[in-house]
Design a protein around this nucleic acid. Structure first.
Lengths: 246, 246
DNA sequence: CGGGCCGCTCAGAGGTTCCTCAGAGCTTGG
DNA sequence: CCAAGCTCTGAGGAACCTCTGAGCGGCCCG
């Protein structure tokens, strides 16, 4: 099977060709990070730094999805959106917006099935939203089985934001949820604290790896509470989530 | 078959051509050591001393991977990363970083599937990480069978950091793990204590060969415990790991 | 047979990594 | 404006890892 650097199967359309995404942001570092993360997830990625470049790149690439910063140097995001829809009406758009941006305008836009995340965001957030968009649009072959992650008796419903272990409901805070999602998307693989920080925390988070330890300890209290543990520490390397073996 | 001085088969792409790596470090000694070790492993290697040289060398060589010191005299690591990806989007990058700089600005680096090791590092560490990158990228022909090392009934899963002997799980400390990995990558070959020190311990380790004996004894207790021994001493020469013969 | 060399292992000091608690600051929602 | 919840900082302490030193035993040589 065609796989990506993440070890996940490459994202493909029903016809087998890879999914294409266009990243539009004027901050080169951020664009670089997004590009890398999405490529790692199996997308065919292309980047643009402003509205004009975005539209012309879209004309060439005919992307399935666009990650679009609302604040661009030349054009405003909504104009770009209109042009993009002219180029390809069924394209999915994920907006990137500042926290204090006008919520109602965004709400109007996302009515069409599009979605948005506020800056600063975590990469897991972006990746998950994009997957959600594609799933709802019925565009990705391997997402059709639904929004559920399963590792052993641990089950996560991403859309309902519900987690259960052997049927019992587990309540998680937003950060706990995202951390667990990352672990569940990489079962049986040791993840370093740096990797976890890069993926689960916002790109502008200046804190230390100590936070990861703290949240792992929170998760253990909820996920492993009194049960056979699934979250393991690998000293000097990181953490692993794996199903209980017997 | 095309082999190197190490006896390892030359690393090749799916099309049979050798894998190429670019080493970027401003410390000539370190660059020399890295270059030697990687060449020994079957890579086609080239070195550069700063960011500008790195980018232009990359344009010529079109390497499959880059080993890149984040602290360069001219450019910062993030910029070099971006330029490298412009030259060759699918290139894998392994960053070298000082231990106390880890927290600074690694954010985003591992996000794209790239990886890093902290100075001072061991050569086994670097080699293993590079192999991991390449494997995940699906780039090396002979790494495709997955991240498992097998010698007799001894099995090491590098990604899960799990070692089993005839199915039984063996718990190892970081140094023990790395030493065993080195032995398992060179089965049936006598390795001198000096060789082991050079490979498994950091390049700045001042200690003496006695540590190797100590760790071999630790390993024996865990790996050979009560079983037919696989780790053998060759007096005056070194140690060998080999499958049990009957 | 005896001495020197090499390798093995034990015990423990010192350092590092990790876990957890307690609480301050912030955000959210009523 | 208050209450509740969430996120992060800091500190203490526990567990673990690494290396040093020393003693012992076996091997090979004279």
């Amino acid at each position: 099977m065609n796989t990506t650097r993440s070890g996940h199967p490459a994202l493909t359309r029903p016809d087998g060709t890879p999914l294409r995404v266009l990243v539009v942001d004027d901050d080169p570092d951020l664009a670089e990070v997004l590009t890398g993360a999405l490529r790692y997830e199996g997308w065919e990625v292309r980047a643009a730094g402003d509205g004009a470049a975005a539209v012309s790149a879209a004309r060439e690439l005919l992307p399935d999805a666009v990650v679009l910063d609302v604040m661009l140097p030349d054009t405003d995001g909504f104009t770009v959106l209109r042009r993009l829809h002219e180029v390809k009406p069924e394209v999915c758009v994920l907006f990137l917006t500042a926290r204090d941006a006008v919520e109602d305008r965004i709400a109007g836009i996302t009515a069409g099935g599009d979605d948005y995340v506020t800056k600063p965001f975590s990469l897991e957030e972006v990746v998950a939203r994009l997957r959600g968009l594609l799933r709802r649009a019925g565009m990705a072959r391997q997402l059709e089985d639904g929004p559920r992650l399963v590792v052993g008796d641990l089950v996560m419903d991403e859309e309902a934001r519900e987690v259960t272990r052997s049927g019992e409901l587990i309540e998680l805070s937003p950060t706990e949820f995202e951390l667990l999602r990352f672990l569940m998307r990489n079962p049986r693989r040791v993840l370093s604290k740096a990797q976890i920080l890069d993926r689960v925390w916002s790109y502008d988070f200046g804190g230390r790896a100590h936070v990861v330890e703290l949240y792992i300890s929170y998760l253990r209290k909820k996920v492993d509470a009194g049960r056979e543990p699934m979250i393991h520490t690998v000293r000097g390397a990181g953490y692993v989530l794996k199903p209980v073996t017997r």
